[in-house]
Design a protein around this nucleic acid. Structure first.
Length: 225
DNA sequence: CCAGACGTTGTT
DNA sequence: GTCTGG
DNA sequence: CCAGACGTTGTT
DNA sequence: GTCTGG
């Protein structure tokens, strides 16, 4: 679930919307952002404390991993178990972030089944919104280069999302951004299903299945049969 | 998330 | 790094 | 104690 | 069927 996202950039507009300091990164519009790709993430700079907008890679690599090749790079983290998970706990305590999106895709049907139907999930008013993430800083032993990665937090579906899937990403209210990005040790109350009545979903073409198809057409409603 | 691969030898 | 299993 | 895993989804 | 890569 929530394995593809819509991030229609204009990085500077997103930077202002999420009140991030500094300069915006270069980021093309993403109609079909997929795991293993670099996407815009809002986070708090550990040293300056500034809220910043950076490019992070989707798929969390814990900092203690030696060789991420073959290693698991989870793209999702259950909010119920993350607080006690060895892999996620540290990041949840100290490295929380926000993935600014315009929507995301969800596939309905049994996993592994053929003919799964993809749906676009957005806000009714089409406004951008924030998904809660955790991130890590990993140093490549061979190149000494640092790589920032992230995973999306999930929670049980609300009534609307439950029609296609039983899990959904943790969506934050703008009023909760400060608390989420801060050092609040008790943020579990924020990791809850978002209000159904503000959201909408519609079926889209299976053209979205290929992450290589990063074009506006993947967002178009499925033509009536 | 889906698409595509799914092996061996030995070498840098 | 931290937890579980043997 | 050390060795090995450390994730999510959903299914039989 | 299961894992890896984007």
């Amino acid at each position: 679930m929530c394995g593809r996202v819509i991030q229609l950039s204009n990085p500077d507009a997103i930077r202002k919307l999420f009140e991030a300091a500094g300069t915006a990164p270069n980021a093309p519009p993403r109609y079909n952002g997929a795991p293993a790709q670099d996407l815009m993430v809002v986070r708090k700079h550990p040293k300056t404390g500034d809220r910043v907008l950076d490019m992070l890679r989707w798929g969390l690599i814990p900092y203690w991993v030696e060789d991420p090749k073959g290693g698991r790079k989870p793209i999702l983290a259950r909010s119920e178990s993350a607080p006690t998970s060895p892999t996620f706990r540290g990041a949840l305590e100290k490295r929380r972030g926000i993935l600014p999106v315009d929507g995301f895709f969800e596939w309905k049907g049994e996993k592994g089944a053929k003919n799964r139907q993809p749906y676009a999930v957005m806000m009714k008013d089409r406004s951008p919104f924030g998904i809660a993430v955790i991130w890590e800083n990993w140093k490549d032993p061979s190149t000494e280069a640092w790589l920032r990665t992230f995973a999306v937090l999930t929670c049980p579906s609300n009534a609307l999302m439950a029609t296609i899937h039983d899990r959904m990403p943790v969506i934050l209210e703008p009023g909760d951004y400060d608390r989420w990005l801060g050092a609040d040790p008790d943020v579990e109350a924020l990791m809850v299903p978002y209000a159904s009545e503000k959201m909408m979903l519609y079926p889209v073409s299976t053209a979205v299945n290929s992450y290589l198809n990063d074009t506006p057409e993947v967002m178009e409603p499925l033509a009536a049969a």
